[in-house]
Computed example of a mutant assay.
Amino acid sequence: MTAWFEGRLAGFDLETTGVDVETDRIVTGCIVQCGGKQPTQSATWLADPGVDIPEGAAAVHGITTERARAEGRPAAEVVEQMVAALAECVLAGLPVVAMNASFDLTIVDREARRYGVQPLVDIVGGDLRVVDPRVLDKQVSRRKGRRTLSDLCDHYQVQLGDAHSADADAIAACRVAWRLGTTVEQLGAMSLDDLHQAQIKWAESQGRSLAAYFRRTPGKQAWADGVRTEWPFIPAQRAGGDA
Rank of each mutant, 00 (worst) to 15 (best):
D169Y: 10
C174P: 01
A43D: 09
A59R: 05
E230R: 15
G125D: 08
A170D: 00
G219T: 05
A10W: 11
R175C: 03
S42K: 00
D132R: 11
G56F: 05
S42Y: 07
V140P: 06
A211S: 00
S209Y: 13
T106M: 09
D194Q: 13
G35Y: 00
G35N: 06
T106C: 04
I234C: 13
G226H: 08
E77N: 03
L46D: 00
P133N: 15
L180N: 03
F103K: 08
D154P: 06
V184L: 09
I200H: 15
G207M: 06
Q237D: 14
P95M: 10
A172T: 12
D193K: 02
A57M: 07
D193W: 13
V60I: 10
V78M: 04
A10K: 08
R69Y: 00
R73K: 12
A47C: 14
L94D: 08
G188V: 11
G29C: 00
G240M: 01
D169Q: 13
I200N: 02
T16N: 05
G125L: 09
G93E: 08
A85Q: 07
P232A: 07
V121C: 14
Y156L: 10
A239Y: 15
Q41T: 00
L136N: 04
M190Q: 08
E6K: 14
L128H: 13
R73A: 08
P235R: 03
R175K: 12
A203I: 10
